[in-house]
């Protein structure tokens, strides 16, 4: 009986004292990469996801974000950036001088082919994220005016010229696949006085607050739902497909052929809905991009949960 008691005490004390920790050892870097990115939320999120994913796979990653769309493209071409997330529509129209293509696969195949031939840039498989331009109205106002599609909007604008104001960022207001193209395709015009140019992130708020009646936006932006806005249907299929895909310099891919396979799961696991949610987390919930990115990566088993 005494032995047993002693044994019990020792056991308990051992249990009481038990505690510990551990750490990982270092590894050799798999290579240095510069991940580029544009200057809006989705791009920050995508860049962060990519760089964390690469870092977790042993790459030494430098981020170069907050760049203009064409600036980052130039940086890629000029070998200052190694890879970044680009949209098929943007590349097709802005960089390759092609006409916009509405069909996702068609657009991607064309971009992939042309960009490789002309610029030595490889497009990895596209994600089901279609961050195309969209025209939005407040749900309430749209219902009141009976506007559901861009054609309805065109009719309304033509019937009541100068009544509706429009919010746009600088790029959309001047791009051929932006407002001017849409106005031409649907046959209406807001009039230069009614177009308010502002930072891309502010258009949603301006629309919500009633400063404008119609606003441009990106279809993956979470604020469309959060602010009770409505996307006007692109019934003429004007806006091109803007599927997100990683564009990477061919030399980099030659140097790191494993990247194609390594990065594939990112595109496979992303779609418009997911992207909207991730954007929502950052824009509306004001969370850290790296937090959101890590969460998503871990959720899909792409990195180990900490």
């Amino acid at each position: 009986m005494k032995k047993m008691t002693a044994g019990l005490s020792i056991l308990s004390l051992m249990a009481l004292a038990a505690c510990g920790g551990g750490g990982d050892g270092g590894e050799e870097s798999a290579g240095d990469l510069v991940v580029g990115g544009k200057n809006f939320t989705e791009q920050f999120v995508l860049a962060t996801i990519t760089s964390i994913y690469l870092q977790e796979n042993g790459y030494n990653v430098e981020e170069a974000t907050n760049m203009g769309s064409e600036v980052v493209r130039d940086a890629l071409v000029n070998e200052q950036v190694d890879l970044y997330w680009e949209y098929t529509g943007t590349a097709l129209v802005n960089y390759l001088g092609e006409d916009p293509v509405s069909d996702g696969d068609e657009a991607f195949d064309l971009v992939k082919e042309l960009d490789y031939e002309q610029n030595g840039i490889t497009w990895l498989d596209r994600a089901e994220v279609d961050n195309t331009y969209t025209l939005m109205m407040r749900q309430e106002a749209a219902d009141e005016m009976g506007i559901e599609s861009i054609s309805d909007l065109a009719d309304y604008v033509n019937a009541n010229p100068g009544e509706l104001s429009f919010a746009s960022n600088a790029e959309f207001a001047s791009r051929s696949d932006g407002l001017p193209g849409a106005e031409e395709a649907y046959g209406f015009e807001f009039g230069s006085g009614n177009v308010n140019r502002m930072d891309s992130g502010l258009t949603y708020q301006a629309l919500r607050d009633g400063n404008v009646d119609v606003s441009m936006g990106f279809s993956t932006d979470s604020r469309i739902v959060a602010f009770d806005l409505v996307n006007l249907e692109d019934d003429k299929g004007f806006f091109p497909a803007y599927n997100a895909a990683i564009s990477i310099r061919d030399e980099i891919l030659e140097e790191h052929p494993e990247l194609e396979e390594l990065l594939a799961p990112l595109a496979q696991n992303l779609d418009t809905q997911t992207m909207t949610e991730l954007n929502y987390e950052v824009d509306i919930e004001q969370r850290n991009e790296s937090e959101v990115a890590r969460e998503w990566l871990a959720e899909h088993g792409l990195i180990d949960e900490e």
């Binding site: 750490g23 962060t48 964390i52 977790e56 890590r294």
Partner: peptide
């Protein structure tokens, strides 16, 4: 090693 992987 943790920092370089962008972890928190």
């Amino acid at each position: 090693d943790l920092l370089s992987r962008g972890r928190m």
